[in-house]
Structure formats: C-alpha cells, structure tokens
Simulated scan of single mutants.
Amino acid sequence: MKEGKLAAILGPSGSGKSTLVRSIAGFVRPESGEIFLGDRNITHEKPELRNTAMVFQNYALWPHMTVYQNIAYGLKLRKKSQGEIEQKVRWALELVDLPGLEERYPTQMSGGQQQRVALARALVVDPEILLLDEPLSNLDAKIRYRLRFEIKKLQKRLNITTIYITHDQEEALSIADQVILLNDGLIQQDDTPEAIYSRPRVKKLMIKLT
C-alpha cells in the first residue's frame, strides 16, 4: 500500500482480517511470508519496536486510569519527558475533540468518546502506521457514520498510513483510498473503491457483505 493512504481490508467474519492486522502489529507471528514496513523487515521484531499503533474493537482502555493516563501510557513507555507528555496529550485531546476531559475515567464516557480516547492514545505516539481493527463495530449506526468520516479527516490531516479492518462494505468504500477484499485468508481483489464497487471480481462475496 502507498504511504499516507488509507487501505481498508474488507471481508466476512473468519476471513483472516484481524489475524492479518495483528500480525502487522506483532501480536501474532505469521506461519509463512514476511512483513515489511517500508524497506524494513519487521516480521520478527517485537511489537514495541515496530512503531505501529492499534485501535481495537473494544477500545482496550485501562478502566482504572484516567483519560490523561490512558493517552500518556505509550509516551511513558517511550520514556518521554513530563513536559513533552503533557504537551502531546493536550494536542491529542484537541485532535479528537475531547479537550477538558482528561480527568474522566472510561466508565464515565460514552462508547463514542471511549473510541476517541483510544484513537488519541494511538496517534499520540506518532506511529509510522495506524492499525484500526473494526474500530466502530460496537457503536450505534448514527455515531458510527459520523466517526468514520472523522477518522478519514484525521488520517488525511496527519497524512498517516492507515489500515482499516471492516466487514462493512459501505464503510470501506466510503473512506478508503484502497480496498483489499479478503476471503478465506486470500486476497480476492486489491483495487480502488470505485473498481471494487463497479467491477467486483467475486460478486457473490460482495453480495454477502451487503
């Protein structure tokens, strides 16, 4: 995929989408093949050395930590100074439109707000690649519709290379620069959203995803 673009990996449940993105993050070791980030082979690198960041379907926020502490967590692991941490956390909260909520706990927030915190936590470490594993699937339709375009707006603003996992055809086609259609662990089509929609190679699969 091209640097600075958003690629959606689209496929039904069990097609291998999450396994693929977790392999890129380093949480799953691939049985074969290699993973390159630019010119660097990261197949056997530890997750913390890959400079990737992941947003999960269930947010994966620490419930005993405040919003500030959740967002700052990755920066502390990278041994950033307190001044830089405070500056970056404020920047991230502004970025996801949650200024002033740094002392709240995840349980005091809506699902949409929690997902914004998870996104801020991922972006604050300035990753080379952002991995989104069905980030909106736990939200109701109205919030999901709004957040998908906010994610795309942020991705373009930051020019960050992004992989977006989804089983929602409309979601993939509306925000992606590139759509990779996956089924049974195999790429069925890799094309622009327009081509995937108008000239699908596997029509039965697209109908299944509708």
Results as ranks from 00 to 15, higher is better:
9 I>Y: 06
201 R>Y: 06
77 L>A: 11
69 Q>H: 05
168 D>K: 06
116 R>K: 07
127 P>A: 00
147 L>P: 08
37 L>Y: 07
61 L>Y: 02
87 Q>Y: 09
137 S>V: 13
197 Y>W: 03
194 E>S: 11
167 H>R: 01
102 E>D: 13
7 A>N: 14
34 E>N: 12
160 I>C: 09
7 A>P: 08
89 V>M: 05
8 A>F: 12
125 V>R: 04
141 A>R: 05
147 L>D: 00
25 A>I: 08
99 P>K: 03
210 T>L: 15
8 A>P: 09
167 H>E: 05
96 V>N: 01
29 R>K: 11
165 I>C: 08
142 K>R: 13
166 T>R: 07
144 R>G: 06
66 T>F: 04
192 T>V: 09
50 R>C: 02
49 L>R: 02
152 K>D: 10
164 Y>S: 08
173 L>A: 03
182 L>V: 14
186 L>S: 07
113 Q>F: 03
55 V>L: 00
104 R>K: 10
187 I>F: 04
11 G>F: 04
110 S>A: 05
169 Q>W: 00
1 M>F: 01
164 Y>G: 12
177 D>Q: 11
37 L>W: 05
202 V>E: 11
44 H>C: 00
146 R>A: 15
40 R>I: 01
21 V>D: 12
191 D>P: 08
22 R>L: 12
135 P>S: 11
39 D>L: 07
116 R>A: 05
14 G>A: 15
135 P>W: 13
13 S>Q: 14
35 I>V: 06
72 A>V: 07
158 L>E: 10
191 D>C: 15
112 G>P: 01
60 A>N: 10
162 T>R: 03
30 P>F: 02
185 G>E: 08
50 R>P: 06
189 Q>I: 04
64 H>L: 08
207 I>L: 10
192 T>W: 12
81 S>N: 09
25 A>K: 12
45 E>F: 06
59 Y>H: 06
204 K>A: 14
176 A>R: 07
33 G>N: 13
142 K>I: 02
18 S>Y: 12
62 W>F: 15
42 I>M: 05
94 E>N: 15
187 I>G: 04
24 I>R: 04
82 Q>D: 14
73 Y>M: 08
68 Y>C: 02
103 E>S: 14
163 I>N: 12
158 L>D: 09
115 Q>E: 02
57 Q>R: 04
206 M>N: 06
15 S>Y: 15
198 S>A: 13
7 A>T: 15
125 V>S: 03
13 S>M: 13
152 K>E: 15
154 L>N: 08
124 V>S: 02
104 R>T: 00
130 L>M: 06
34 E>T: 14
17 K>D: 15
89 V>N: 06
46 K>H: 00
126 D>V: 02
199 R>H: 15
189 Q>H: 03
192 T>P: 10
95 L>H: 07
101 L>I: 15
96 V>Q: 05
51 N>H: 04
177 D>A: 07
77 L>S: 07
174 S>D: 11
